Amino acid sequence: EAHAAIDTFTKYLDIDEDFATVLVEEGFSTLEELAYVPMKELLEIEGLDEPTVEALRERAKNALATIAQ
């Protein structure tokens, strides 16, 4: 499951495998979680700032909209 989540994140969020791995290690496994989890939870991840989190959430929401079509 972790590998599938990493693949999904790299494909749809335009991030590298290392960043995707950090997200999975922090407990995220779906685009929905990244799109809708409280921003505070993402900001608790070391190295993430508000602009990065906002961009990540926007990419996740856009990916979900694209997949739904």
Rank of each mutant, 00 (worst) to 15 (best):
E1I: 13
E1T: 12
A2W: 15
A2G: 10
A2Y: 15
A2I: 13
H3W: 14
A4F: 11
A4V: 12
A4K: 14
A4M: 11
A4R: 11
A4W: 10
A5Y: 06
A5L: 10
A5E: 03
A5W: 07
A5K: 07
A5T: 08
I6L: 07
I6N: 03
D7I: 14
D7M: 15
T8W: 09
F9M: 03
T10R: 11
Y12N: 04
Y12M: 06
L13E: 01
L13T: 02
L13A: 01
D14K: 09
D14Q: 12
I15M: 05
D16I: 04
D16Y: 03
E17N: 10
F19P: 00
F19Y: 06
F19E: 03
F19A: 05
T21Q: 13
T21S: 10
V22R: 15
L23S: 00
L23N: 00
L23D: 00
L23T: 00
L23Y: 01
V24L: 08
E25G: 11
E25R: 15
E25L: 14
E26W: 15
E26I: 15
G27S: 01
G27F: 03
F28H: 03
S29D: 06
L31K: 01
L34G: 01
L34A: 00
A35L: 14
A35H: 02
A35Y: 08
V37C: 13
P38Q: 08
M39T: 10
K40H: 14
E41I: 13
E41N: 12
L42M: 08
L43K: 05
L43V: 06
L43E: 04
L43C: 05
E44C: 08
I45M: 05
I45Q: 02
I45S: 02
I45A: 03
E46P: 14
E46A: 13
G47S: 06
G47R: 07
L48S: 02
D49F: 04
E50Y: 13
E50P: 10
P51F: 13
P51H: 14
P51E: 14
P51A: 15
P51R: 14
P51T: 13
T52W: 08
T52P: 00
T52I: 08
T52K: 08
V53W: 15
V53S: 08
E54M: 12
A55C: 10
A55V: 09
L56C: 03
R57Y: 03
E58L: 09
E58I: 09
E58D: 08
R59Q: 11
A60T: 03
K61E: 07
K61W: 06
K61N: 06
N62G: 07
N62F: 10
N62D: 09
L64W: 03
L64D: 00
L64Y: 03
A65R: 09
A65N: 10
T66N: 12
T66I: 14
A68L: 11
A68S: 11
A68T: 09
Q69W: 03
Q69P: 06
Q69A: 12
Q69C: 07
